[in-house]
Design a protein around this nucleic acid. Sequence first.
DNA 1: CAGTGAGCGAGCTTCCGCTTGACTT
Length: 783
Amino acid sequence: MQKNLVIVESPAKAKTIEKFLGKDFKVLSSYGHIRDLKKKDFSIDIEHHYAPVYEIPEDKKPLVDTLQKESKKSETVWLASDEDREGEAIAWHLSEVLQLAPEKTKRIVFHEITKNAILNAIEHPRQVDMDLVNAQQARRVLDRIVGFELSPILWKKVKPSLSAGRVQSVAVRLIVEREREIQAFVPEDSFRVVAHFCFDAPEGPTEIKAELSRRLKTKQEAWSLLDKCKDARFTVEDIVVKPARKSPAPPFTTSTLQQEAARKLGFSVSQTMMIAQRLYESGHITYMRTDSVNLSSLAIHAAKEEILGSLGEKYLHTRNYHTHTKGAQEAHEAIRPTYIDKRSIEGTLQEKRLYDLIWKRTIASQMSDAELEKTTVTIGIDTATAEKFVATGEVLKFDGFLKFYLESQDDDKELSEDEKMLPVLAPGQMLNLSVMTATERFSQRPPRYTEASLVRKMEELGIGRPSTYAPTISTIQQREYVARGDKEGVERTYEVLTLEQGKISDKKETEKTGAEKGKLIPTDIGMVVTDFLTEYFPDILDYNFTANVEKRFDHIAEGTLDWTEVIDKFYKVFHPVVSNALSMRLEKRVGERVLGVDPKTGRPVSVKIGRYGPLVQLGLAEDEEKPQFASLLKGQSMSTITLEEALRLFELPRTLGEFEGKVVVVGVGRFGPYIRHDGKYVSLPKAFEPLSVSLDEAIELIRAKREQESKRLIKSFDEAPDLQVLNGRYGAYICYKKENYKLPKSVSDPSALTVEMCMEIVKAGQDKESGKKKTTRKKAASK
DNA sequence: CAGTGAGCGAGCTTCCGCTTGACTT
């Protein structure tokens, strides 16, 4: 009979802890939640105090069986899930499902995975905290109610298979509203005046650059200042030297790691999480889903040793950081290297780079401030005494933590001139003007969100958790509410006035502005759904909704509120709005817009969302003649399409002419624009537009496709007509009875393959396939 | 891969937070 069973959430954690506890303890993992509301049904009994209907998901059953057996064998079961709302619920579900007797069940928590922390936890067990569990049930039930009541409204009113929820709908709203701000943005221009002065210093002629202390509103104003400066005397009026400090950023949380990995390494949010997961599993870093900036005393000590050893005491400044994030639950440490003395690790390049980032950030957080000296020089103009030029310089006196790490800025802001050292000057010193320019500058529109900056905003609003940031971002893209995309910049002209050698000249220059890559852009569906939800459910879409309900969850956790009453209060208000929204008959479809009348037929033209996305419609459903439909093209938007553009869409499919006696037709299908000829399809590359592509271009594309086709067949065999060696997008492969098989790496020349060799590969592939099918089928069933 | 979409209409879709798989084309 084994004495003790400890259950934690993560298997990697289980492995480490088992080492600390010795023979009398077996440590297993629950792999997160073991029980949840039933997947399919609403599963909340409204009539009976919102009683949740739980089930053990199919893929968790074997695990639960194992836990069952092991717990029966043990004298004491230690529930060691995380110390937060979800962790407490996991502990409770475990004790319910495994039917653990209270006298042999103990709840323990620890914040750091160290031997001391765990032994200490074992010394201080407690019972499962039902108030905290109820706070979790309230959270879970609320999310189910919101998600499962809102989504069906969208299926009926907008499009099937859409979804809405407390977190995702607000995330989409942020992106939609930002896009509208950008559309409504009117840039304001002003003139930035910069002067280059020169003077004779002991070491030779020296230059200094200074900027007028304010921007000038108009060209006239700029001109008149430059005019005044033609014969002006410039004098150094004041020199101020001020010390300044910069402090390091706190250690990484999930959200800050995602942001920095995006800025410094160019990783997507999900990529960062996958790489971090691997680092965690191989024991290199602490847990990667955390909202805490706290470091264990052990880690701080290790960082201290590391800094003292390599740089000395001057660079050391240990600190404890505190979380100010809304709704943070701090069940884990900050993300840091497990062994801080490990400067680098074995692994892929990406793993190494991410580890390096985490290492530097952790070490820097325990290092001294950087010390700077900021110098400000004010330069007066005798012909315009109200105006001043200002030159600023910055000198790094002591690098401190900057030796390792500087947090990046989003590229949102206009880059400031890099500040550097100023030459030595004295008050009263005269300066000669060499050149002065007044350049027209424009105020910047707000930037679109990146995945990482959206995460930052969500965290700020307390929406979502470290474990859901990445999944939420992929959900809103999967539902086609938003898409990652590039925006081309626009050419803009601006004016530059130059004063040089007593003469003012005036010229126009051009620049590209507003180009963005990989930013989140809302789709028509995203905008229509957001408008609909904010109109009917303003409370849910409110940026403070989560923060407000979190307050109530906190009261439940403290035991001062009953969870079913919180849900009841919410449901009594929410559900009638849902019923109302479902029953109302809409004059128009949600998001429908009438563009005008087709001059040819006199029939009305409108845009709306159809089952497969945005479409234009010519005529009405009740007309005797059936209406015509056409999908919007890529790059077109319901909100900006004009009547003329819409009418042109009805020209598709369009006959271009004949080639080899057969018609060539261009159209737009489910997979984008295509050319059809002689029963064969060729997709239209991005560079062409279906409305403007010519017959000659189409023929060219058909020929190119044929050329590619002809290269497709590498080898066929007379004795085995079902067998072919083909050239595909990913290189050579074998096709046998319509199934494809990958070639092993050992095959260097696919054209040398024989029937026997091929059949061997096919057979190996089939064996693998049959082993795989079981799992894929299971996946499909659970989906 | 397939180029659709209100007149019949079954049955499907959906939430958020905990975890890690075992897959590739």
